[in-house]
């Protein structure tokens, strides 16, 4: 009689210890925003990361007259909280890297099933294209 009780208590303890923190959201049913979406090309070299973090969309804008701003919407496809690292890189019309301070790896934390946006502003007016790099956190 005692064995099922012990199993039940152990299962409860394990479940409590591994409780997920999925994110619920609410927003306007019909969005008023009209983002300028960008077609994207994806290169997946880490299949598990590709399954874990889904790229929902990419949109762009021009700020300060002639500087590109890119925003990428990412979604944690898993129920567990995740931390990844990301980095934007920019290139000019000749395909040359423009460099800059912003080209650094940054950490990004997700709750379970959470959607987040990452963005970057090209500090060089010559920048026309971007690459977003994603990597699992150490």
């Amino acid at each position: 009689m005692k064995l099922p009780l012990i199993i039940l208590l152990a299962a409860t303890g394990i479940t409590a210890g591994c409780s997920t923190s999925n994110i619920n959201t609410v927003s306007r049913s019909e969005s008023q925003a009209t983002p300028e979406m960008v077609g994207d090309k994806r290169i997946i070299t880490d299949a598990s990361l590709g399954k874990m973090i889904r790229i929902v969309g990419v949109n762009e804008a021009t700020v300060s007259g002639n500087l590109k701003k890119i925003q990428v919407t990412l979604e944690n496809a898993k129920n567990d909280p995740r931390t990844i690292s990301y980095k934007f890189e920019w290139v000019d019309k000749d395909g040359m890297a423009t460099g800059g301070l912003g080209e650094m790896w940054k950490p990004l934390q997700f709750g379970g099933r959470e959607t987040k946006t990452v963005s970057a502003v090209a500090t060089s007016p010559q920048a026309v294209d971007f690459t977003l790099k994603l990597a699992e956190a150490r």
């Binding site: 701003k69 301070l101 650094m104 790896w105 502003v121």
Partner: peptide, 30 residues
């Protein structure tokens, strides 16, 4: 600018300076 730098609890690290400056510049330009 990589992911292999030291993360300290008692000082502002190089990646913290870079990140703060980058995000403030992006905010100002935007």
């Amino acid at each position: 600018k990589g992911t292999g730098t030291v993360v300290s609890l008692d000082q502002i690290d190089i990646q913290d300076w870079n990140r703060a400056a980058d995000e403030l510049v992006a905010s100002l330009l935007a």
